[in-house]
Simulated assay, not measured.
Amino acid sequence: MTIASNDARQGASLLYRTMRDFVHSTDDTLPGKFEITKEGIVLDMMAPSGRHELTALRLRKRLEKVMPEEIVAHTGEPDVEDEPEGIMRRPDLMVIAEADMDVDGSFDPRTLVAAVEVVSRSNPDNDWRGKMRDYALIGVPVYAVFDPRTGTGAVMTDIHPTPEGPRYATRKDFVYGEDVTVAGWTISTEGLPRYENE
């Protein structure tokens, strides 16, 4: 029984490393953004729109104004990876201590203070469902979602165990125009752009 369990873990680890190698081999060669979830590889085919990137920029600037200097709101690479769980994600914005960025390879998700996502027009379920599940599973204590389609969002906190695995216990919804608190820092959502035709 233990041998089968070890074989299953080794097989899952090999599958994950194969998926990770594929994702890394496609960086800058195929359109879209690849991530590894509990279900496998997810591809967001659409390049982020200007409004998506403008939202991430404004959130980064607003957070960095109120956070201590040693904490940053980082956009970009590397990924956040938990190999034992088989998950590799790249949040739109990572709130993290600058000292925790000094690593080779991916960031440890447990060093993040918060993950922030701007909902993609092309695949909103990835942000609202998949990432909400995965970030709790890999120990990211705060997950904030900003949705330019609807001008709404939510901040998830308080990871707790469930039969399906760790999940966020607390969800605070907001509408654009209200102040929102992300990991103890309050920022305005005034003036965040919306997608057109939504």
Rank of each mutant, 00 (worst) to 15 (best):
Y176D: 07
E81P: 07
R89A: 13
V23E: 11
I71M: 14
I87D: 14
A97M: 10
F34C: 09
L93V: 15
I138P: 02
H24L: 15
I71Q: 08
D44H: 00
P91R: 00
S122Y: 07
G105M: 10
F22D: 02
E39L: 14
V142Y: 01
S13N: 08
F174K: 03
W128Y: 03
R58S: 13
D102M: 05
P161L: 07
E69F: 11
M101Q: 12
L63C: 14
R110L: 08
T152L: 01
T162N: 04
V118K: 05
R20L: 15
G11Y: 01
S25W: 09
Y16S: 10
L112P: 09
D79Q: 04
T152E: 09
V42G: 04
P84I: 03
P31V: 08
M101Y: 06
D173K: 00
L30S: 07
D125H: 06
R17D: 06
P84N: 03
A169Y: 03
F174Y: 04
A47H: 07
P163T: 06
M94C: 14
K65P: 03
R110C: 11
K33G: 13
E53S: 12
E35Q: 10
I36G: 12
M46R: 03
P166N: 07
F22T: 07
Q10F: 02
E190N: 08
H24D: 15
P68C: 12
L43D: 07
E64S: 13
P124F: 12
P68T: 12
H24A: 14
G177W: 04
D125E: 11
S188R: 02
Y176I: 11
R62M: 14
E83G: 02
I41E: 07
D82V: 10
E198Q: 04
T181G: 03
S25R: 01
E117L: 13
M101G: 15
A99P: 01
D179S: 02
G40W: 07
G76D: 13
T150C: 03
L57K: 00
T186W: 07
N6Y: 00
E81K: 03
P124N: 08
G165Y: 05
A154N: 05
D104P: 00
V103N: 06
V155R: 01
L14W: 14
R20Q: 13
M1V: 03
L14D: 13
A115Q: 08
G76N: 11
V182M: 08
N123Q: 10
K61R: 14
E64V: 12
D134P: 01
D108K: 00
A99L: 08
I187N: 05
G151Q: 05
R133V: 15
L43M: 13
S25K: 00
S188I: 13
R167H: 10
D82M: 04
E117K: 11
E70Y: 13
V72M: 08
R62A: 15
Y143E: 11
Y143K: 00
E164L: 02
M67Y: 05
